[in-house]
């Protein structure tokens, strides 16, 4: 079992897990750090949340990522936990994977069995189950630098959360992606393509309508919150409308 920050491993051992071997990777320099490389930000998997949140370059280039991470857990957990652990722990309430999904990020793995590299879109990553990830070691996360705004709503945490992004061309909205936080199966991501590139000033009054259409793209939302599908859909549309307002204002 891999150990870096150690939070989830320790908790699992307290619940009875007995790993045969523990390999600790937290201090390997190549797995830590943040850099800008050719139009993307690359974050080492063993980088702690606190380091990401306070990295001057990241705060300048992707301020919304720093802001989002500042709301994870608490200061003790962010100083100890790593971004790789947040993703690979496979806990449905953990919030990094949905953010990375709406940012269009990739997860870079080293494959122990082949010695090669595997790159998977964050939005397609299925949370690890016993056999599926045994030979894969997450080494870094690549976030493309695009004209994008991000907003989130965590007010119903831990039952349900939402993070969304809008991609821009000048002052026009082209495309949106929203991911639900809390799904056991991986980030539940749905896209919304604006039929015509919409100026923000025109999109803002239509946020409620856009949210209604967008919410219909989450037909299985009730598996997260409860059996009343109409209520779940309503809650989701409210969250979508609020994050849309936030993004269109900025």
């Amino acid at each position: 079992m891999i150990h870096a920050g150690g939070i989830d491993l320790a908790n699992r051992m307290k619940r009875g897990a007995v790993p045969e071997h523990v390999v600790t990777l937290g201090q390997i320099p190549d797995l830590c750090g943040i850099q800008e490389i050719g139009g993307r930000i690359e974050i080492g998997a063993a980088t702690r949340h606190w380091e990401i949140e306070n990295d001057p370059m990241l705060r300048c280039r992707l301020p919304m990522v720093a802001g989002y991470i500042a709301g994870l857990g608490n200061i003790r957990i962010r100083m100890q936990g790593t971004i790789g652990g947040n993703i690979m722990a496979g806990e449905p309430g953990y919030e990094m994977l949905p953010l990375l999904a709406v940012l269009g990020a990739d997860l870079v793995f080293a494959d122990w069995s082949t010695g090669g590299q595997e790159i998977t879109a964050a939005r397609e990553w299925v949370l690890p189950r016993a056999s599926s990830s045994k030979t894969l070691l997450l080494t870094s996360i690549r976030i493309p630098l695009r004209p994008i705004t991000v907003a989130w709503n965590r007010e119903l945490r831990p039952a349900l959360g939402l993070v969304a992004s809008l991609e821009w061309s000048g002052d026009r909205v082209l495309h949106g992606a929203a991911a639900v936080i809390g799904d056991h199966r991986g980030p539940m991501v749905r896209e919304h393509h604006f039929t015509e590139a919409l100026p923000a000033a025109d999109a803002a009054p239509r946020a409620a309508n856009i949210a209604e259409v967008w919410a219909d793209k989450f037909p299985d939302i009730d598996v997260l919150v409860g059996p009343d599908r109409d209520y779940c859909r309503h809650v989701l549309s409210v969250m979508l409308r609020r994050v849309l307002h936030t993004m269109l204002k900025t």
Binding site: I7, A10, N11, N74, R76, Q80
Partner: peptide, 24 residues
């Protein structure tokens, strides 16, 4: 790791000692 009663500083960082292996 939720309550922070076990907080200690490790190299100046506040750490949840109940979720930190001693070897770290």
């Amino acid at each position: 790791g939720a309550c922070g009663a076990c907080t200690v500083l490790v190299d100046g960082r506040p750490i949840t000692a109940c979720l930190s292996f001693a070897f770290t």
